[in-house]
């Protein structure tokens, strides 16, 4: 034993041991257990009963809601990226080189440090149909007041808008860091070649910022795919907004597990979501690697 402890080879393992044990117990074990549970019916009170792939079959062949939530989740994740990434990039480009950097940084870090529940409640008041701030504003111009949170066709869009605002600061920060790392000599060379502002952005900034753009997209997509806290606050008491229009797969999984006690189905949902995010991430990482090579080139 003493020999083992004094062995140089054992030292790294001694240091790593607690972390490995922690990761095994709190990360690996639940993932493996969830895989097993997804192949059973289990209410968490009685022993699990093996059903093979029946839960997966149910989700894709029988469940009238699951595929809809999957589509809504992808729509939410892609919608936040489609609106949020160009907006953050544009703002970071405009303000990144402006004066008063400190003031700008305070402004765009605010959403990052504000509690999600507070954000949700504030926007809940902004979006209220009859007496919300936004509709009152529209009313001043004689415009109709849509049901931002009560109309099934607008509910998810409203959630996307709020999430874009929430993520804006983080994305701007990443883009600002990316912009700061671009050497000024590239711009000087391009200017000597007669490049205008748009051409500088298109042919210098954007290619060199590609790794950052792809990082923001990968992490934003993963974040959007698993997110549902905002929906709980924006659509309180509902089962995912009006007519379930803002029900995401994550929230549906939660309902299955902790309201219906269908742990097997919920675990199957988690694995489908995991597979989807994994595939999307692998694709994006492949693009990211390409982006990195191109950027260096």
């Amino acid at each position: 034993m003493r020999g083992l402890l004094s062995s140089k080879a054992a030292v790294p393992w001694l240091f790593l041991g607690p972390v490995v044990v922690f990761a095994a117990v709190f990360f690996v074990l639940p993932v493996v257990f969830a895989a097993y549970v997804s192949l059973t019916t289990w209410d968490s009170l009685t022993p699990p009963r093996w059903v093979g792939l029946a839960n997966y079959q149910y989700l894709f062949a029988t469940d009238p809601i699951f595929l809809r939530t999957l589509w809504q989740t992808v729509y939410f994740a892609l919608g936040t990226l489609a609106l949020g990434v160009p907006l953050a990039l544009g703002l970071a480009t405009v303000f990144g080189r402006s004066r008063h950097q400190g003031a700008w940084r305070v402004l765009y870090t605010l959403p990052m440090v504000t509690n999600i529940v507070a954000i949700g409640f504030i926007f809940w008041f902004v979006f209220r149909q009859t007496d919300g701030l936004l509709n009152r504003l529209l009313g001043l111009f004689g415009l109709p007041g849509p049901g931002w949170l009560t109309d099934p066709s607008l509910a998810m869009l409203s959630a996307i808008l709020v999430f874009v605002w929430m993520e804006l600061g983080r994305n701007m920060l990443l883009f600002a860091a990316g912009l700061a790392s671009i050497d000024e000599s590239y711009y000087e060379a391009a200017r000597l070649d007669g490049a205008g502002r748009w051409q500088l952005f298109r042919f210098v900034t954007l290619p060199l910022l590609k790794p950052t753009v792809l990082f923001v997209i990968v992490t934003g997509f993963i974040s959007g795919m698993s997110y549902f806290t905002l929906m709980l606050v924006l659509f309180p008491g509902t089962q995912g907004g009006p007519g379930r229009a803002a029900l995401t797969t994550g929230q549906y999984m939660y309902q299955m597990a902790f309201e219906d006690l269908r742990m097997g189905r919920a675990s199957a949902v988690s694995y489908v979501l995991f597979a989807l995010v994994l595939v999307a991430t692998l694709v994006q990482l492949r693009l990211l690697r390409r982006g990195g090579v191109e950027a260096r080139g």
Partner: peptide, 14 residues
């Protein structure tokens, strides 16, 4: 004026 109900004759909940 915006076409939204200010006072509802009847109501349900969410």
């Amino acid at each position: 004026d915006q076409g939204n109900i200010d006072v509802g004759g009847y109501a349900y909940g969410t």
